[in-house]
């Protein structure tokens, strides 16, 4: 039973991280119908920025909790800046190009960013400082749930609620929904579509950065490659939930996280990634619209 609980919580934690990344995929896809291949790299850059800032502050002797907060803020700022810039450089000039072009551009961007971080920093694993303090009240349950897991799940829930409220009630959120439904129409009614797209990239990237810093705290080490696998898995989550749908991404991420946790816990840990990829392949083949998505008929 305890093992089951441990797996359940592990799955929730994983799922939370996937959700934070998957939201970016799903939002971008909803608006410009592009799989932003470089999104996993944004997450990785968030983790690296967090590591650099946290490392500096630790050496300067800042207290633990404030380091986490500052590191998170910096990670969000820089990841958002990268997301914004990537869109301007690699995707915006390709609006209206054949569908394959921005996708290839995205793959190129992903390759570039991975190598950029590897060359600027290192190709080895870097230890990530422990920023999340051990909570006293969790001591008794330590075997099933660590404080970093609690922080991750809580942060994800907060981010998701915040995002949902933002999309629902703010003007920009409404503009986003309108653009996602029909870009031409949105433009006609005076929505600044370029700004909406930029905002989408910025928000998606910020969420990924939060995910990057938190998971780095939890796992304790990062390297330039973490974005690739996490990116594909988060994409799987987004597709599983129905790409383009925000609640779908959250549900898909949870399903994926739990599936992975239980499959590795009860079946075999060697094939950890195989489960996720197989799930991806199976969904795409049997239900490409995902759990929450709707089948669209192309108008002829």
């Amino acid at each position: 039973m305890e093992y089951f609980l441990e797996l359940l919580l592990g799955g929730l934690t994983r799922g939370s991280i996937y959700a934070l990344i998957a939201l970016g995929y799903t939002m971008v896809y909803g608006i410009i119908e592009l799989i932003n291949f470089a999104h996993g790299e944004i997450y990785m850059i968030g983790a690296f920025t967090g590591l650099i800032v946290a490392g500096l502050l630790t050496m300067l002797g800042f207290p633990g909790a404030s380091i986490l907060a500052i590191a998170l803020i910096c990670a969000v700022i820089w990841s958002a800046a990268y997301g914004y810039t990537i869109e301007k450089v690699a995707y915006k000039p390709l609006r209206g190009a054949p569908r394959l072009s921005p996708l290839i551009s995205a793959i190129g961007m992903s390759i570039f960013l991975q190598n950029y971080v590897m060359l600027s920093q290192t190709s080895d694993f870097l230890p990530f400082p422990e920023l999340i303090p051990e909570f006293g009240f969790l001591k008794e349950y330590n075997s099933v749930m660590s404080s970093s897991e609690l922080v991750i799940v809580a942060a994800t829930i907060l981010s998701c609620i915040g995002l949902t409220l933002f999309i629902k009630f703010t003007k920009l959120g409404k503009a986003m929904r309108a653009t996602a439904q029909n870009r031409k129409m949105a433009m006609l009614v005076g929505i600044n579509v370029n700004m909406v797209i930029s905002a989408t990239f910025i928000i998606g990237s910020s969420l990924a950065a939060v995910g990057g810093v938190l998971i780095a705290c939890h796992v304790g080490q990062i390297n330039y490659y973490i974005g690739f696998i996490a990116g594909i898995k988060a994409f799987t989550a987004a597709v599983l939930g129905g790409i383009g749908s925000i609640p779908g991404a959250m549900i898909g991420a949870l399903v994926l996280g739990l599936t992975e946790a239980f499959a590795t816990g009860y079946v075999s840990s060697d094939y950890e990634d195989v489960f996720a990829f197989s799930l991806l392949v199976l969904i795409l083949i049997f239900r490409p619209a995902g759990i929450m998505g709707k089948e669209k008929t192309q108008k002829v």
Binding site: R99, F277, S278, L284
Partner: peptide
């Protein structure tokens, strides 16, 4: 056979998944 029914960008991801598997 199973994957080619998918749209272009999904195909890219599925083939990537297969490659990794």
């Amino acid at each position: 056979f199973p994957v080619l029914r998918l749209r272009g960008d999904y195909l890219a991801i599925v083939t990537l998944g297969f490659g990794e598997i």
